[in-house]
Amino acid sequence: MMAQEKEVDALTGTETTGHEWDGIRELNTPLPKWWLWVFYVTIVFAVVYTILYPAWPWFNGYTHGILGYSSRAAVRDRIDEMAASRAHWVEQIETTPMSEIVNDPDLLQIATVGGRAVFANNCAPCHGTGATGRPGGYPALVDDDWIWGGTLDAIHTTVMHGIRNGADPEARMSEMPAFGADGILTPQQVSAVAEHVLALSGAGPDNEEGAQIFAENCVACHGELGRGNNELGAPNLTDQIWLYGGTKADIVHQVTKPRQGVMPAWNTRLSDAEIKQVTVYVHSLGGGQ
């Protein structure tokens, strides 16, 4: 700022700063001084902050600040806090039988919310995020059709030990013979029995030959009426839900050379409380028995 004669704007009577751009002159309307102090306070704040907290990039990383604050440590603390605040509920879930959990509104809420997270992290890749299953033998868990049973205990066992995984001795185990591939039935017989199976759910005309073959080969597991057996993992053939598809070609394929899905045992990967929660969650999806 040059010390020179004061220039006063004629129109407003206000002094100018002496700055001029293309004939436009800047009026000097000074701010109150306390405004400046506020600015100095922010500078002091910045300096204090720099001393206390991590602030500047440095050759070997960054300046750490004398408080030793780190956002990672803060997140860890928050996670520990969260775990501690949940400990009470986790303990309740562990000690309460599932049949009681589903009748206690608070525990049911905790279990379904926790179970949803467990499901999303572990089960969704095969069963879908909404538990609607995937084509090719990953069953939907939202409907009322269960291969290994839809009671809390049955679901719990399935989650704990898995299915046909060869790792857990208590895993669910069933094996439908390969009627076509092993030459037990001829292709014509397979075709006839497939038509009979379709007729069981009202999806086509029945035939005598197929019924005969069904009675000789299939009723041991699927039952006389074809309603299946949860104990043996034999699906119900009279309903509208098909694990591997409900066309005749699908059924012929399955009778000729059955596909047999595998599910891992989760007791080695999830805690007891997590398994209980995910069981309650799956049971709550609408199909629980």
């Binding site: 700022m1 010390a3 020179q4 004669e5 004061k6 002094e15 700063t17 002496g18 000097n28 000074p30 701010l31 109150p32 001084k33 306390w34 405004w35 400046l36």
Partner: peptide, 19 residues
């Protein structure tokens, strides 16, 4: 100094006003 007439010797302009 601001607005106190042109008879005084020139002095430094103030950008912040005392209250």
């Amino acid at each position: 100094g601001i607005g106190s007439g042109g008879t005084q010797p020139p002095e430094k302009q103030k950008l912040f006003a005392d209250r």
